[in-house]
Design a binder for these strands. Structure first.
Lengths: 208, 208
DNA sequence: CCGTCTCTCAACCTTTTGGCTGATACGGCT
DNA sequence: AGCCGTATCAGCCAAAAGGTTGAGAGACGG
């Protein structure tokens, strides 16, 4: 069995060293590099391949995790990437998987789960935390509830607290169209006021 | 110089081991116990004193960090407690300090900052991350913008997407009173719609 | 080619919200 | 005793938001 090499990408020093300590207990896994940002991760990957990249999604200013995943997958086809993050928002999960992540782990995952995900990732298997998987399935089961791109755009602006008039101006559409989109969004989210839409958007979709 | 003993309280295993590894580099600091919840922390403290408690605020189900801080301070007067968390929301900072925390560190703080905070805490000095301190000062400079307890309560419910009528029913007050409170909240937050109030509340106050 | 989806817009009407003014009551502080 | 902050309520009016129906233009796939 060849050793599995890991690159850690997380802007929090404590998380990196914690993960390093945790993975150090496994003889077949070794952390060979750490990066505090997406840019740094790309740089490090230039210098040599690793079996798996473990990446946080929220990483302060600059390139975010999703962007980093997409860029890495463009440059190194087939690179195994695991998302290791605190939150399990629907939007993040879908976008991460879409960008090319092999798995999605939460930071409170059990050690065994983390080890299994890493070993699975190098073999091309996709492993994710149970709560994450259930959210993904829920998305697939209810395609009616998936917002169209335009609706998602509008919802995103909605969470900034804009009025219908302002939304129209921002998106270069009439107020009437804004109201139409909103009506569709409300139906899909199962709410009937913009306040509730904002609340569920932020809580469900992680729009912060 | 006596050794400083530390109790780590965080529901994330990786954060605990990361912090343990980091603090292990300092000869005068040693992590003597770890807890994954507020309840567990209280139990451990029964068994013996520590110099400093380092506590996360968000810890899954059960007792939250603020509650844990308050309880610890009740049982062991003078116990030094440092908050070590990811987010720097105004509300959390104020409540943590109010509950009796000696300092407030962000998880992306530099190692030296963390060491300094721990050493300061055992000496009774209060140390906090720069962004945290600036937020605290801002609160003190603008007392006009501090919400009254009732207003905060209402704002919290507002972020759930309730209508004025529902707010009134929940709080056992008339819709007229709800509107009065809302008007005051809008003025203090510097907004003029409930949507914007929800947006700023969630972003500024960390009401998730 | 036709159906479906998406995005766009309009008119109409009801409900909700926001702005304003004013009022009562209670507690604490001076 | 008087003042201030907080919490409570009312009424009025204008603005914003929500519900409904209908409809046209592209795009895309069967």
């Amino acid at each position: 069995m060849t050793a599995i090499t890991v690159l850690l990408v997380d802007d929090h020093l404590v998380v990196r060293s914690g993960l390093r300590a945790l993975l150090g207990t496994q003889p077949d896994i070794s952390v060979v590099a750490e990066a505090a940002s997406g840019e740094e991760a790309l740089q490090l990957l230039e210098q040599g391949p690793v079996s798996v990249v473990m990446m946080d999604l929220a990483m302060g200013p600059g390139m975010d995790g999703i962007e980093a995943i997409r860029t890495i997958r463009e440059r190194r086809k087939g690179q195994a990437i695991l998302v290791f993050t605190t939150y399990d928002s629907d939007a993040d999960i879908v976008r991460a998987v879409d960008a090319g992540a092999m798995g999605y782990l939460l930071k409170d995952a059990a050690p065994d789960e983390i080890f299994a995900a890493i070993r699975g990732a190098v073999q091309g298997r996709s492993v994710m935390s149970a709560p994450v998987a259930s959210r993904l399935f829920q998305q697939l089961r209810n395609p009616d509830e998936i917002l169209t791109p335009r609706e998602a755009e509008l919802l995103s602006l909605l969470t900034e607290g804009l009025s219908n008039r302002e939304l129209g101006q921002r998106l270069f559409i009439s107020e009437a169209t804004v109201k139409t989109h909103l009506a569709h969004i409300y139906a899909k989210l199962g709410v009937d006021t913009r306040a509730a839409a904002i609340a569920t958007a932020i809580r469900r979709e992680g729009m912060r």
